[in-house]
Design a binder for these strands. Structure first.
Length: 518
RNA sequence: GAGGGUGUAGCUCAGUCGGUAGAGCAACGGACUUUUAAUCCGUUGGUCCAGGGUUCGAGUCCCUGCACCCUCACCA
């Protein structure tokens, strides 16, 4: 780069200022800063603690600063002579905007609670502080101590008496208005995205609230949070391609887990009657706006419940999550309206199939014929697999929801208990919202012999890796020790957050999505 | 994996018919003690994603590759 010390390159200009700050004997990377106030708290305190007192000692109520047409300078003239008083505060944050009018600098700083303006007057802060302020750049982390008050235009302001530099930013700042919009850079440099894009943090804070809410709902119902292994010898509990890895000392192949299910059920056998895990799972598959190779699942299991119990729980979890982030049960996603007011709609798989295709789901010949019309591959596939492909193609995408689809064909549910009066139907539901599967729940299969048989019988037309029916001998042995009848629920946390935060891409709610290296 | 789009200054983006690179912001110099994307005057800044080709001449046309975005497929 151009290293003329005329500072043409923004990076070099910042380095040059860094050197000057060091020459002033100031550490450009700051130190502990006690007694600082969050900006949101300053804003709140300003409402009661900024006062206007006339010279005669009478306190005059301040005008409405939210009023766009307010001329505070005029108001002061009309209500004076007098003086404004306010508490002294210490604030810290990143410089987002700055206006230098010579011997007076206005800087807008931001901490994670909000923005506030700082008034830096040469006379008010003194020569040394002012010289430091002249070396501030957009993006620097700074601090100010001073009186909280209002400028002539009514803007809430910290009138600085002392200034601090907490960290000099050595990279050029993004466009001060547009921010960092390049989606690649936003994901690669999430720090810059969060720091410079208005509202970028909100979806992530909502995510945290939703996860906290889920924990609190489950804890309230006496569920116990546990941590299962993420390195699995047999990748089970879902139909997905796992990431392969290897343990050196044991010279043993391992996979990253694709689901939480089988270990949680082992705990049910052990007597942990209500367990859940909120954890990361890994699937070695395509990346899309709705798929990231690692994502977060909730799975919970309740002894002596069934899938109906889980339906109630699902509604409760979602309702509580919405209460946690606010905004009400009627929500927008991508311009569409979704009503989460419970109870959610319920419909059986067979009815939805009948309605969408006009044919009876149990009429195998008609199903196969219909599949051929849709150009679906039917050769060598189990009729239930074909039927499910039709269901996905013609039903799932049309489900606006929230809707519980209940009672799935048993053959595509190898971990699910069958209906007592109809072994062809499994007690399973999936919750759909705008074509997205948000939750999946079963009355759990606890018959070890049937489980073993289902593991052994590969579904026709499915590769082993495409089937959930992967033999896990230890799991079957666990079932032989006796697992109570139970309801189990899985929730895709990322998709729930997407829908509740109105974000179309999973990358907008995963802080560090997987990217190719630069 | 298939199709489409994008890639130009630190950031956000223009760039006509193929004719020697543009703006705003940022940066640098100057003026300004109540500004609000401050304003005003001046200046600097380019491996036009990479490589190859066509051409007298390529940011522009062609080919290959890379990255990202969108749609589809995969993800039961």
């Amino acid at each position: 780069m151009n290293q003329d010390s005329d500072g043409k390159d923004p990076r070099e200009a910042r380095r040059e200022k860094l050197r000057k700050i060091e020459e002033m004997g100031i550490d450009p990377f700051g130190c502990r800063f006690d007694d600082r106030s969050f900006i949101a708290d300053c804003r709140q305190r300003s409402e009661t603690e900024i006062k206007w007192t006339r010279q005669d000692g009478e306190e005059v109520p301040l005008p409405d600063f939210a009023d766009e047409n307010l001329d505070y300078r005029q108001w002061k003239a009309d209500n004076g002579p007098g003086a404004e008083s306010g508490p002294t505060v210490r604030v810290a944050g990143r410089i987002m905007l700055s206006r230098d009018t010579g011997k007076l600098i206005f800087a807008n700083i931001r901490d994670w609670t909000g923005d506030i303006q700082i008034f830096i007057g040469k006379k008010q802060v003194g020569e040394e502080n002012f010289a430091l302020a002249k070396l501030f750049d957009l993006g620097d982390l700074v601090g100010a101590e001073g009186r909280l008050g209002r400028t002539n235009t009514g803007e809430l302001t910290v009138f600085a008496e002392k200034l601090f530099l907490h960290s000099k930013m050595l990279e050029p700042a993004p466009d001060k208005h547009a921010g960092l919009t390049n989606p690649d850079l936003r994901q690669r440099m999430r720090y810059a995205d969060l720091a410079f894009n208005d509202g970028a943090m909100q979806a992530f804070l909502d995510r945290t609230k939703i996860v906290k809410s889920i924990r609190s709902t489950l804890d309230r119902d006496n569920f116990c949070e546990v941590e299962g292994p993420t390195l699995h010898v047999v990748p089970g509990g879902a139909a997905a391609r796992p990431f392969a890895t290897h343990h050196n000392a044991l010279d043993m192949p391992l996979t990253m887990r694709i689901a939480l299910e089988l270990h949680l059920k082992r705990l049910m056998v052990g007597g942990m009657e209500r367990v859940y895990e909120l954890g990361r799972v890994y699937r070695n598959e395509g990346i899309s706006p709705r798929h990231n190779p690692e994502f977060t699942m909730l799975e919970c299991y309740q002894a002596y419940g069934d899938y109906g119990t889980m339906m109630d729980l699902t509604e409760q979890l979602i309702v509580d999550a919405i209460d946690a982030i606010g905004g009400g049960y009627i929500r927008q996603f991508d311009g569409k309206t979704i009503d989460f007011t419970p109870p959610f709609q319920r419909a059986t798989y067979a009815d939805l199939f009948q309605k969408a295709t006009g044919i009876d789901a149990s009429d195998e010949a008609a199903v196969i014929e219909h599949a051929k019309k849709l150009n679906l591959e039917t050769e060598g596939k189990h009729p239930d697999v074909i039927r499910n492909e039709i269901f996905e193609e013609q039903v799932e995408d049309t489900l606006e929801g929230p809707i519980f689809v209940i009672d799935y064909p048993a053959s595509i549910c190898p971990l699910t208990k069958r209906k007592r009066d109809n072994p062809e139907i499994a007690e399973r539901f999936e919750l759909f919202v705008l074509g997205m599967e948000l939750a999946n729940a079963y009355t759990e299969l606890n018959d070890p012999d049937l489980q073993q048989q289902l593991f052994e019988t590969q579904l026709q037309g499915l590769e082993e890796e495409d089937s959930m029916a992967k033999m896990d001998h230890d799991f079957v042995r666990a079932l032989r020790y006796g697992m109570p009848p139970a309801g189990g629920l899985g929730v895709g946390i990322d998709r729930l957050v997407m829908i509740l935060a109105d974000k179309k891409s999973i990358r907008d709610i995963i802080l560090f999505p997987l990217l190719r290296p630069e």
